[in-house]
Amino acid sequence: MKPVVHQGGWLILATFLAAFILAIVPLPGLLQFVRPEWSALILIYWCMAIPERIGVGYGWIAGLFLDVLKGTLLGQHALCMAVLAYLVINLHQRIRLFPLWQQAIVVWMLLNLYQLLLLWFDGITGQPSKGLQFWLPPIAGMVLWPWIFILLRHFRRTFKVQ
């Protein structure tokens, strides 16, 4: 049996880098409340497409970088991303079969969970409450999911990432 040759690692790195940049790019006014969790979306895609390669560990490391980038408690985003990666890997065979709009709904639920964990951290550390607009980013993520999916699949196929 021939071992699977991993390739295209740079593309995965590049997508995460782009997600980090998008995570702190200044947005005007109210738009910043709708900013989707780019890195979470990217992580969901890669965990779904190549679960034997990208998993909880990568999620955790990416989350750690996100923590430093956003100046939050070290480990807050890391834990959320790790949980997200675990769930997606568990579900990936099912999600892959769904049509795009159903996938988007699942992604919305996953992002809600991610947001819930973040809210839980804020509660523990005594941050003031944030109101209902805190639940807007998962909706933005859901709306963007089909496009992200198609774009990343195109990249994955052209550069033969496996």
Binding site: I24, V25, Q32, R35, K70, G71
Partner: peptide, 12 residues
């Protein structure tokens, strides 16, 4: 010129 958490007023 970076945005952090929109609910906290932090700058770099």
């Amino acid at each position: 010129n970076v945005d952090l958490d929109p609910y906290k007023h932090l700058i770099r």
